[in-house]
Amino acid sequence: MSGLFFKRITIDSQICHGKPCIRGLRYPVETILEWLSSGMTIEEILSDYEDLQREDILVALNFAAKLAHVKRIEDLVAA
């Protein structure tokens, strides 16, 4: 993963049970993705959560894309 991931995505066992979060804030990556998949736009998220930045949302999407990148679907299902 690029350096941007390490600046924007943090994992701390004391925050949100160790789930990947945005910049040490209590916004798990999965929550950002759920908001987007429910139809919220980036602009709506940023308006509702002013401590988030556009780059946070984009890196959450990129993080999910990296996790979803598998050579075969069987590798994903077997995990």
Rank of each mutant, 00 (worst) to 15 (best):
M1E: 08
L4D: 13
F5C: 01
F6H: 14
R8C: 04
I9D: 03
I9L: 07
T10Q: 07
T10E: 04
I11W: 04
D12G: 04
D12H: 06
S13V: 07
I15Q: 01
I15A: 01
C16H: 00
C16A: 11
H17P: 00
P20H: 02
P20V: 02
P20K: 05
L25G: 02
L25K: 04
R26Y: 09
R26S: 12
R26E: 15
Y27I: 07
P28W: 12
V29L: 09
E30L: 11
T31N: 14
T31R: 13
I32D: 01
L36S: 05
S37G: 07
S37V: 04
G39E: 09
G39R: 07
M40Q: 14
T41W: 08
E43Y: 12
E44C: 04
I45V: 14
I45C: 06
D48R: 13
E50Y: 12
D51E: 14
L52S: 02
L52I: 03
R54M: 11
E55M: 05
E55K: 12
I57N: 00
A60H: 02
F63I: 03
A65T: 08
L67Q: 15
V70Q: 03
V70A: 05
K71P: 00
K71Q: 11
L76S: 05
L76I: 10
L76P: 01
